[in-house]
């Protein structure tokens, strides 16, 4: 067994919260810069420029990229040979979130679903923990804003609807979302599994570097087709009109029941924030 100190996890999570919210990934910046070369709409181009300037100001000043610093969502790979000294993993993550959101001047956006009373410290965080071989602890944070999350959808399609049905549902989701999720967006698509598995792999698909195709050639082809059609919708940056509605489509699959074809679309805004650390 390898011991990892509770406090070390707290500190790492604190740092992840702050860096994820103030430093846009190189992959996103590259995708925005590529989109600028192709965009034909003047209003759309202006939006892409503002997004670039915003990222610069954020990294220079430490002000968060977006005031919606999100739900603190974590994907954690916990090695079977790791033991945490001094407390539980969940407590450590929540302590780190509390400290990072307070110390980093990040907005606390979590509330009771009915009373709407704010919890005041952006906890509880959401943890997706995988037990893996080895003695390492990998923590990925993906703060998720409400605007894009609200436009996400899930359908239990009939198996007969197949590839075309999946394609239609993803395009329809982007179309219905229109300007609301702050385009240009990234579409995380989960196909297969169960009701909850489809949603989870859709979210996990958003962790892939923007625009890196699926290793499966057929899926990579489907990603490209959907991206083309979504960008033909004309919604454009912020919905002002243009050819950059989505920066990428990332599809992940999982075997499903013989009766089912679940498909989940998790929409990510252009402020596609995620950071990771390995302890």
């Amino acid at each position: 067994m390898r011991e990892i100190e509770f406090e070390k996890i707290v500190q790492s999570v604190r740092d992840l919260c702050i860096s994820a919210n103030t430093r846009l990934g190189e992959d996103v910046l590259r995708a925005i810069s590529d989109a600028k070369r192709k965009e034909v709409s003047p209003a759309g181009l202006d939006v892409l420029e503002q997004i670039e300037r915003n990222a610069k100001i954020s990294s220079d000043t430490g002000l968060p990229l977006c005031q919606d610093t999100g739900f603190a969502v974590f994907f954690i790979d916990l090695g079977e040979d790791v033991s945490i000294a001094g407390g539980s993993l969940e407590d450590a993550v929540n302590r780190g979130v509390r400290s990072g959101y307070e110390g980093g001047y990040l907005r606390k956006s979590i509330c009771d679903p009915f009373t709407r009373e704010n919890t005041g410290d952006n906890t509880p965080a959401i943890l997706h923990v995988n037990l893996v071989k080895g003695d390492k602890l990998k923590i990925v944070i993906a703060p998720k804003g409400g605007g894009s999350e609200n436009m996400s959808r899930l359908a239990m399609l009939k198996p007969s609807e197949g590839r075309e049905g999946v394609k239609r549902f993803v395009i329809e989701t982007a179309s219905l979302a229109g300007p609301n999720p702050c385009p240009p967006i990234i579409l995380g698509v989960g196909v297969g599994g169960t009701f909850e598995k489809a949603a989870l792999i859709a979210k996990r698909a958003l962790l892939r570097p923007v625009g890196r195709p699926n290793k499966d050639l057929e899926l990579a082809k489907l990603e490209k087709e959907i991206l083309g059609e979504v960008n033909n919708l004309g919604i454009g940056p912020q919905g002002f009109g243009g050819i950059t509605t989505a920066l990428a489509v990332h599809i992940e699959t999982h075997p499903c029941h013989i009766a089912s074809l679940p498909v989940a679309v998790n929409i990510q805004c252009h402020s596609a924030r995620h950071k990771e650390v390995e302890l």
Binding site: G44, E172, A174, N232, L233, G234, G241, I243
Partner: peptide, 15 residues
Amino acid sequence: YEQGRAKYAKGGDRG
């Protein structure tokens, strides 16, 4: 939102 989309949409809106 309607005007911008109509101006830049290509090949029919499937949504």
